[in-house]
Design a protein around this nucleic acid. Structure first.
Length: 296
DNA sequence: CCTTGAACCTGGGCGC
DNA sequence: TGCGCCCAGGTTCAAG
């Protein structure tokens, strides 16, 4: 499911339910997701208070009051949902408000706070997601985060920075933008969309956007602006929902209705005056959607 | 160093 | 209705 805008949407949806709440119990319904859960994860989280939620790249960060951060990656199919009310079987007026367990519910946060008891449930059919516990002081140096490039929404990302990263690179632009070491948080959808907005071909060598002197060419400025714009637009739309919900209340993001090329093979290119058709090719084993007529 | 392909896992869609 | 095949928002690791 999740690239940066989807994880940001999840974070914003979880914040009202989780921030300031106490974890009465963390329930792990299996011993692993993509990786085994760290030792005694349930015991370490149970009883702690959540002091804040954060996001870095595609990672959701749950800051606890003991200085540790629960790090959650949603892989391809992970999602969170919030359920107000007490746990099943607990006598009380909230019982009716609680939803049924669903297939692939792997982790349940049983929370208590000013708004009453509630559950936050992590569901992940493919189990490519994972959770880990890292000391906040060591977060930046942790292997998950150590090599990540800048966030596309921040000031660090600019044409000069990308020129430095792309210089002399024969690697296709598509792959260079998917590389989390260059920019953190972009995935298949938003790379395709940003390249279309920039009129740049996904096949083109990344180094061709840099002069021999190492200066960014004008097209690199356009690429940076396109990346920023598409990410901002997607966050504003609550992310993209392809096969399932993205928002924590079960509703859908709607940026998928704004796709210009992603999953639009055979459809007309929307670039004004272009007249081309969206094509699908495979790069590094993944689908790339683009218009060969206007993306050079 | 670089690039590609397979692997991890389940489910949905489509053709027959 | 069922089967087989292909595809899927990510990341990592082996191989060439």
């Amino acid at each position: 499911m999740p690239e940066l805008p989807e994880v940001e949407t999840v974070k914003r949806g979880l914040a009202p339910a989780m921030e300031g709440a106490r974890v009465a119990r963390l329930e792990l319904r299996r011993k692993d997701l993509r990786f085994p859960f760290p030792d005694a994860l349930a015991e370490k989280v149970s009883g702690r208070t959540i002091v804040g939620l954060g996001r870095r790249a595609k990672y959701l960060l749950v800051d606890l009051d003991d200085g540790n951060t629960l790090v959650s990656h949603l892989g391809m199919s992970g999602s969170f949902r919030v359920e107000e009310g007490a746990a099943s079987g607990t006598p009380g007026q909230f019982h009716h408000a609680r939803s049924k367990d669903e297939k692939h519910d792997h982790v349940v946060f049983h929370l208590e706070g000013p708004g009453g008891p509630r559950r936050v449930v992590y569901n992940d059919p493919r189990r490519f997601g994972f959770m880990d516990m890292v000391s906040r002081a060591e977060l930046a140096a942790h292997p998950f985060f150590r090599d990540l490039g800048p966030e596309p929404t921040g000031n660090e990302l600019g044409a000069a920075y990308l020129a430095e990263r792309f210089r002399d690179k024969a690697q296709p632009l598509k792959s260079a933008l998917l590389d989390q070491k260059n920019i953190a948080g972009l995935g298949n959808i938003y790379v395709c969309e940003a390249l279309w907005r920039s009129h740049l071909s996904p096949i083109r060598a990344a180094g061709t956007l840099v002069t021999t002197g190492g200066r960014p060419r004008e097209q690199l400025n356009l690429l940076v602006a396109s990346i920023r714009d598409v990410i901002a637009d997607a966050i504003a739309a609550g992310g993209s929902s392809l096969r399932d919900h993205i928002q924590t209340d079960g509703s859908l993001g709607y940026f998928q209705h704004s796709f210009s090329v992603y999953d639009r093979e055979g459809q007309a290119c929307g670039t004004s005056g272009c007249g081309g058709t969206v094509a699908r090719i495979v790069q590094a084993g993944r689908s790339t959607f683009y218009c060969a007529t206007c993306q050079k």
